[in-house]
C-alpha cells in the first residue's frame, strides 16, 4: 500500500475525521450499542453500506486520476455521490471531512488532478478527494473502507469506555468483508459514474438526521 493511503487512514492525519462518529454516537444515545458485543454487527453493516459506497467512490476517483478525464468529470462524480447520499446530514459530514482532507492534501500531495477536482468542486466529498490523493484505486478503496469503520470504533471507545483491545480485535476481524468490498470497488472503478453501485443505509441516514437535530439542541461529543 502506498504511503499516502497509510497516512490518510491514520487517525493522526489532520483531516478532521476525529470529530465524526459515523452514527455510533446516536446509536449509543439510544442504547442500541452498549458494549463490545454490539460493535461487530454495527461495524459490519456500516462497512457493507456506507463503507462500500465510500470505497467505490474513492476507487473511482483514484481511477480517474490515472486516465484522461474530460472537464466536468469531477462535478459528475460529485453529483453521483450526492444522489447516493439522501441524508443532508451525511452529505454535510462528508463534505466537512472532504474539506479537511483537501486542506491537508494540498500541502502534502499537490497534483494537477487535485487542482482540477478542487476547481470543479471546492468542497469535495471525502471519498472523492481521498481517491484523488491516493491515486491507486484499490489502495484508495482500502483507506476509505477502513476509515468507515475505524472512526466509529474509536468513537465507541470514547463514548462507552470500551476495552480498546477488544475493539481493535473487532475491527481486525473485518478483514475478509473489507477485502470483498474493496475488490468490488476496484473492479468497477473505471465504470461510468452513473452506473456505480449505490448501497443504501436507511438506518444510518435516519440516525444521521436525528443526530444533526440533537446536535443543535444539546451537547454531543461528535459532529455526526
Amino acid at each position: 500500500m502506498d504511503l499516502a493511503a497509510l497516512i490518510i487512514a491514520d487517525s493522526r492525519f489532520p483531516g478532521g475525521g476525529h470529530v465524526h462518529s459515523g452514527g455510533i454516537e446516536e446509536a449509543v444515545v439510544r442504547k442500541l450499542v452498549v458494549s463490545e458485543r454490539d460493535l461487530p454487527a454495527f461495524l459490519l453493516s456500516r462497512l457493507r453500506t456506507a463503507g462500500a459506497l465510500a470505497a467505490t467512490f474513492a476507487a473511482a476517483a483514484a481511477h480517474a486520476t490515472t486516465r484522461e478525464v474530460r472537464s466536468g468529470h469531477w462535478r459528475r462524480l460529485d453529483a453521483e455521490f450526492d444522489a447516493r447520499t439522501p441524508s443532508q446530514a451525511q452529505r454535510a459530514a462528508s463534505r466537512a471531512q472532504g474539506r479537511g482532507t483537501a486542506r491537508a492534501g494540498r500541502v502534502a500531495w499537490p497534483s494537477p488532478a487535485l487542482s482540477d477536482l478542487l476547481g470543479e468542486c471546492p468542497r469535495p466529498h471525502h471519498p472523492i478527494v481521498l481517491g484523488v490523493l491516493v491515486g491507486v484505486p484499490h489502495d484508495a478503496a482500502m483507506a476509505a473502507a477502513y476509515l468507515a469503520v475505524s472512526g466509529p470504533a474509536s468513537a465507541a471507545v470514547r463514548l462507552l469506555g470500551l476495552d480498546p483491545f477488544q475493539v481493535n480485535a473487532v475491527v481486525a476481524r473485518l478483514a475478509e468483508p473489507m477485502r470483498e468490498v474493496c475488490a468490488h470497488a476496484a473492479d468497477v472503478a473505471g465504470h461510468d459514474p452513473a452506473t456505480l453501485p449505490a448501497p443504501s443505509s436507511p438506518g444510518l441516514d435516519l440516525f444521521a438526521e436525528a443526530h444533526a437535530a440533537q446536535h443543535e439542541e444539546e451537547v454531543r461529543l461528535f459532529a455526526s
Binding site: 454495527f42 459490519l44 456500516r46 457493507r48 453521483e80 443504501s200 443505509s201 438506518g203 440516525f207
Partner: peptide
C-alpha cells in the same frame, strides 16, 4: 442528465436486516 436519487437495498441477510445501517431491527420501512 441530473441524478436525483440512486439507492440499492438488499434484504434477506439476517445479519444485515437486523443491523442499524439497514432497518435497525424493524420489519417495515
Amino acid at each position: 442528465p441530473v441524478p436525483l436519487l440512486r439507492q440499492t437495498l438488499t434484504v434477506g441477510d439476517p445479519e444485515l436486516d437486523a443491523s442499524i445501517a439497514h432497518l435497525a431491527g424493524h420489519r417495515v420501512m
